[in-house]
Nucleic acid binder design. Structure first.
Length: 508
RNA sequence: CGGGCUGUGGCUCAGCUUGGUAGAGCGCUGCGUUCGGGACGCAGAGGCCGCGGGUUCAAAUCCCGCCAGCCCGACCA
């Protein structure tokens, strides 16, 4: 009945990448758009991924000396206003609370009570530098109080005009680290350290081969002196900012009044940093690893790493198959990978086998194991990897399976990373003339733009004017100024001198 | 905030031009047949046709108003 070449997701990536993305989110049961515009409902499978990300990151934050705390959701309007660039950056996307009570109006409908207007409006945090800065100002008196190394797991709200599930939503979940230091050098070191943590996490947990670097002035966090970032390329060759780490200098400590008496008995402002990653990482993973059959999950963040699918063709053997599956699951749970027990689930639901199999394919479970009466006789199982074709199965014995499963998961984890890395390298090109640059970022058929472009490594004279012109004309921006050594050269856009090549790309 | 479009079972939509008692596919429930596989048959549940007003013997359909959402711009971690 079914077409063997049929894909589980329609359209395919090639046909319509943005629509493919939305269909994967739906088919994998990750999240859905809610009745609140721009806000998503994160469903258990999607939230399970987030929980695993949290636990991985949280351990890394603790290992680098940070502790968790929690600060208010509401920020007085005046706090935001203190830092000029900061307010300019966020003012246009703020949710504002102006009343604290409802009553019934003349038309009989509920309304914010005119008698309950707040003296000062509160904004729902778009980020917490200012409210946390106010707390730090109270806490810091002496250089002995520094450094403060705190992280907060929270939700934030940025009233985006063009929401897209996970990638840009009005409300999203994230962590924001906020630190205060005695010296500039320490704060810069912290900024670098946390970027390195993100880079490691993206690579080792999410199989995302990110590029680390710093932002140009125009792409900097509002109020930051320097913004470091990790950028990743997804399968339509656009860039996604996967995480940022900001060196805030003394900008926020001055406006928040975080000052202390230094070792030399002089009053000084603290040096602060902030850094964050969000549920956007889930979107980046979907777009990086997903295929035309749905999500493909790196095992380290897969809520179910191995799903057991009992094959029950005959009613009389059903219970014995289920029993064997549960027994196998129990023994596999004793295996460990990445220092944790394997996450195994037996899907014993009374549904057609094909339906169940495809559900797990679409959700991206790394390994599917079928076990049926014939397998039980032979002492084998049928194993499918999500990173390979769904018809490609191997038939190890139970012993071989048990011994090899952790290695298999590590293989998948590594394979996803190297696959994504190969893809990025294939679509990263050094470009030396404006004509080549334009050709690179211009689809052949403008009425039906196909996936095109990628990362262009091109020189840049360092001016915002050049950057703005390219953004205006081609919608291409500088994603990051990579680390490492680059030879100086000539800016293809202005002919002026350039210190190094930077990464240009279209972005989400 | 400009320009375009759409509101009809859970979802995707047809019906509207030319008014006459609400339809399809998918999904859901039950029964049966299949089944190392996204299967099929039969039966069934489920609708203030966005809201308010008007025209008419009669409105999902025509007219007016309102509300909501979507797309394209502008804007944007």
């Amino acid at each position: 009945m079914s077409n063997p070449n049929q894909t589980a997701i329609t359209p395919t990536r090639e046909t319509d990448f943005p629509e493919w993305y939305q269909q994967v989110v739906k088919a994998a049961d990750l999240a859905e758009n809610s009745e609140i515009r721009g806000c998503m409902v994160i469903k258990p499978w999607g939230y399970g991924i987030w929980e695993l990300m949290q636990s991985g990151l949280d351990a890394m934050f603790k290992a680098t000396g940070h502790k968790n705390a929690y600060f208010p959701l509401f920020i007085p309007l005046s706090y935001l206003a203190k830092e000029a660039e900061h307010v300019e950056g966020f003012a246009k996307e703020c949710a504002v609370v102006t009343h604290h009570r409802l009553d019934t109006g003349p038309d009989g409908r509920l309304r914010p009570s005119p008698s309950a207007e707040l003296n000062e409006p509160l904004i729902v945090r778009p980020t917490s530098e200012t409210i946390i800065g106010a707390a730090y100002a109270r806490w810091v008196k002496s250089y002995r109080d520094l450094p403060i190394l705190i992280n907060q797991w929270a939700n934030v709200v940025r009233w985006e005009m063009r929401p897209r599930v996970f990638l840009r939503t009005a409300e999203f979940l994230w962590q924001e680290g906020h630190t205060a230091h005695e010296t500039e050098a320490e704060a810069i070191e912290e900024t670098e350290r946390m970027l390195a943590v993100y880079e490691t996490f993206a690579r080792d947990w999410l199989s995302l081969p990110v590029v680390a670097g710093r932002k140009s002035a125009s792409e900097r966090f509002p109020g930051a002196v320097e913004t470091l970032c990790i950028e990743t390329m997804v399968q339509d060759r656009k860039a996604i900012q996967a995480g940022t780490s900001h060196f805030l200098g003394q900008n926020f400590s001055r406006t928040s009044g975080i000052k202390f008496l230094g070792r030399d008995n002089s009053e000084q402002f603290a040096w602060t940093t902030s850094w964050g990653v969000s549920t956007r990482l889930i979107g980046a993973m979907i777009m990086t690893h997903g295929d035309d059959d749905g999500m493909v999950l790196p095992p380290r963040v897969a809520p179910v790493q191995v799903v057991l699918l009992p094959v029950t063709p005959k009613p009389d053997s059903r219970s014995s198959v289920l029993e064997a599956a549960e027994k196998l699951a129990a023994s596999l749970r004793a295996c460990r990978v990445w220092d944790e027990p394997l996450r195994i689930e037996v899907d014993a639901r009374d549904l057609g086998g094909g339906v169940k199999n495809w559900e797990w394919i679409k959700k991206g479970a790394p390994i599917r194991i079928e076990i049926g009466p014939r397998d039980i006789e032979k002492g084998t199982v049928a194993v499918s990897r999500r990173d390979r074709d769904h018809k490609n199965k191997s038939f190890p014995t139970i012993c071989e399976l048990t011994a090899g499963l952790p290695k298999l998961l590590e293989d998948i984890q590594a394979n996803l990373l190297s696959r994504a890395e190969t893809f990025r390298l294939e679509h990263t090109h050094q470009i030396d003339t404006e004509a080549d640059f334009r050709a690179f970022f211009t689809p052949q058929n403008p009425s039906k733009p196909k996936i095109h472009g990628g990362f262009a490594l091109a020189h840049w004279d360092g001016s915002s004017e050049t950057e703005a012109r390219i953004k205006e004309e081609l919608k291409v921006t500088i994603r990051c100024i990579p680390r490492g050594e680059f030879e100086p050269g000539t800016c293809p856009f202005s002919g002026k001198q350039s210190a190094c090549r930077v990464i240009w790309a279209k972005s989400y």
